[in-house]
């Protein structure tokens, strides 16, 4: 039994899905990030001056790119896997000899590819507003991959538990979006009073954005090793949880 064929089939299906509906998946990040760069970068950013020793626009580019990666990796898996449950074609996979880890890997890989596609598009747009510099390209690639993996896993878990389309919008709207915006996309936590700085350090997305920013600019509010350890730890926990739930059939079997 070739599990690689099953994995590639799921991945192909996932890529085919988000490419087919590109006006819903690839186009919106183009519009929203263009507006971010225009308003925060060019119009307001010009008055802010520098942050962390860099022009404000250059400072926010890594965070905006990673924000797009996070929301799209999460959104791809949660909407695709929940639709698969809702339309019951998850049964195609459940009756087939596909191990649970292959199902999980296939959907997560789909989320990573969507994150990569959107991240590349957003980075291309940012290049129109500010020259792109990468101090540590290997860190950029590594943090991108880890972050996309983590939020694809989170989207998968959300879809497993979801019983309605409301359930797949609650976490992105009321948990993910505030954490992303308060994760230092548009500012350095050094600007915050001590108490809010401490609170911010409890936000895992802060570590991802700062590690990503380190890859681009070579500056970060947090230690890189600490950031990678936090992300990796979350990945291990969420992957183990997802596999356990798949094994039990939670949200999929009666």
């Amino acid at each position: 039994m070739s599990h690689s064929v099953a994995f590639r089939t799921i991945l192909y299906k996932e890529i085919h899905r988000f490419v087919r509906i590109w006006p819903q998946t690839l186009l919106p990040p183009v519009v929203t990030t263009s507006l971010y760069f225009l308003i925060f970068g060019t119009l307001i950013g010009g008055r802010i001056g520098t942050m962390g020793g860099f022009p404000y626009l250059a400072y926010i580019v890594p965070g905006v790119v990673l924000m797009a990666v996070i929301t799209n990796a999460y959104g791809n898996v949660v909407s695709s896997f929940y639709s698969t449950k809702f339309q019951r074609h998850i049964e195609e996979l459940l009756i087939a000899p596909v191990p649970n880890w292959v199902i999980l890997a296939g959907y997560v890989a789909g989320g990573i590819v969507r994150g990569l596609a959107v991240g590349a598009v957003v980075m291309g747009i940012s290049a129109l507003f500010s020259p792109i510099r990468m101090a540590h390209p290997e860190v950029v690639a590594g943090v991108f991959l880890l972050t996309a993996t983590l939020f694809s896993l989170a989207g998968f878990l959300n879809a497993l538990f979801a019983n309605s389309f409301d359930d797949i919008s609650i976490i992105p709207n009321f948990v993910l979006t505030p954490l992303v915006y308060l994760g230092g996309v548009f500012y350095s936590i050094d600007l915050l009073p001590d108490i809010w700085r401490g609170v911010s350090l409890g936000n895992p997305i802060l570590y991802m954005i700062n590690a990503f920013r380190y890859g681009f600019l070579g500056v970060s509010d947090v230690d890189l090793v600490q950031a990678v350890a936090v992300i990796s730890g979350f990945i291990v926990v969420l992957a183990a949880w997802a596999l356990y739930l798949l094994h039990r059939g939670t949200g999929l079997k009666t």
């Binding site: 039994m1 070739s2 599990h3 064929v5 099953a6 590639r8 089939t9 799921i10 192909y12 299906k13 085919h16 195609e92 996979l93 087939a96 000899p97 596909v98």
Partner: peptide, 14 residues
């Protein structure tokens, strides 16, 4: 695609 994908889940190359 529905039928081809199902074959893929059974490990049958595309």
């Amino acid at each position: 695609n529905i039928v081809v994908n199902q074959a893929g889940y059974y490990g049958i190359p595309r």
